[in-house]
């Protein structure tokens, strides 16, 4: 006697495969294919030529944008980690559990709350004659040019990533076994030694994860470099938008996009290796 076919598991398993196949994997594959297509008379024609790759990778402005983006995203990852760490440390070790829970609660809110409007607010705040320069002016400082610069873009990146980095760091720090830290003290480690020999290694995965997410989000962000960084020099995301929106050159934009995804893959693998690999 054999059992009847049971449709039940497939009803739960298939929707994701179908939907993500159709609307996530499909578009990405098309984009890769598109990078080998040609544009004639403002229309894309399927083809297999390396012209788009030649055109993009052979140009200085692509590589300038590439290095600027990579550098800024790396800087954002490092800066966000450094700025977040004292706060995460405080939330993990120096406040009550209730305070920590509410802090996390309030950090999650901005993460899902209109980034675009927040960047616009910074545009107003950081303006030459804006509130921040006005306040500094009372102290006889400034005015400083903060918009349309690397500094402006960095403020935007921090707005985007800081809440997430603090959350990830706090979770990993709070998860450290307290006995481990007390054992270090008990064995005569100074607070500094405890931090570097016990706390940082124990929270390694969360710290690296935080920096990696900061890197990934900043690397792909278009709003901050455009509205706060003044889009000069352009980043890769600005390049994609310019190429797509004004030039109608989707295949070339696809080349930039693939280069970005490849870079993110390398970064993600490096991060996983650093997080889970054996320590020397």
């Amino acid at each position: 006697m054999s059992k009847r076919f049971d449709a039940y598991p497939y009803v739960w398993r298939l929707p994701l495969l179908i939907w993500q196949g159709l609307f996530f994997v499909g578009p990405l594959i098309l984009m890769v294919a598109m990078s080998f297509w040609l544009v004639r008379n403002y229309r894309m024609e399927p083809d297999f030529v390396l012209k788009n790759w030649d055109r993009m990778l052979g140009r200085d402005y692509f590589w300038n944008a590439y290095w600027v983006t990579l550098w800024r995203a790396t800087l954002a990852g490092v800066l966000a980690s450094l700025i977040a760490f004292p706060a995460s440390y405080a939330l993990a070790f120096r406040v009550s559990e209730t305070t920590r829970r509410w802090a996390i609660f309030f950090l999650i809110v901005p993460f899902f709350t209109s980034y675009l409007v927040r960047v616009y607010a910074w545009q107003v705040l950081l303006a030459e004659s804006g509130p921040i320069n006005a306040v500094l002016g009372f102290g006889g400082l400034g005015p400083f040019t903060m918009l349309n610069s690397g500094f402006g873009a960095m403020v935007g990146y921090m707005t985007l990533v800081l809440p997430l980095v603090v959350i990830l760091q706090t979770f990993s720090l709070a998860a450290i076994d307290r006995n481990l830290i007390e054992a270090a003290w008990n064995l005569g480690a100074s607070p500094r030694e405890t931090l570097f020999q016990v706390i940082l290694p124990a929270a390694r995965i969360g710290l690296i994860l935080g920096a990696t997410f900061a890197f990934i989000l900043s690397f792909g962000d278009f709003v901050s470099p455009f509205y706060l960084g003044g889009s000069k020099p352009p980043t890769l995301s600005i390049l994609i938008i310019d190429t797509t929106k004004s030039g109608q050159q989707w295949p070339r934009a696809a080349v930039v996009a693939i280069m970005m995804i490849a870079t993110l893959f390398v970064a993600a693998f490096a991060a996983v290796g650093a997080a889970y690999g054996r320590r020397k």
């Binding site: 984009m31 990934i216 962000d221 696809a254």
Partner: peptide, 14 residues
Amino acid sequence: TIPLVIMGLAMLAW
């Protein structure tokens, strides 16, 4: 984890 700009481009074409 895929940058939104890239999702936008891929979706536009697809």
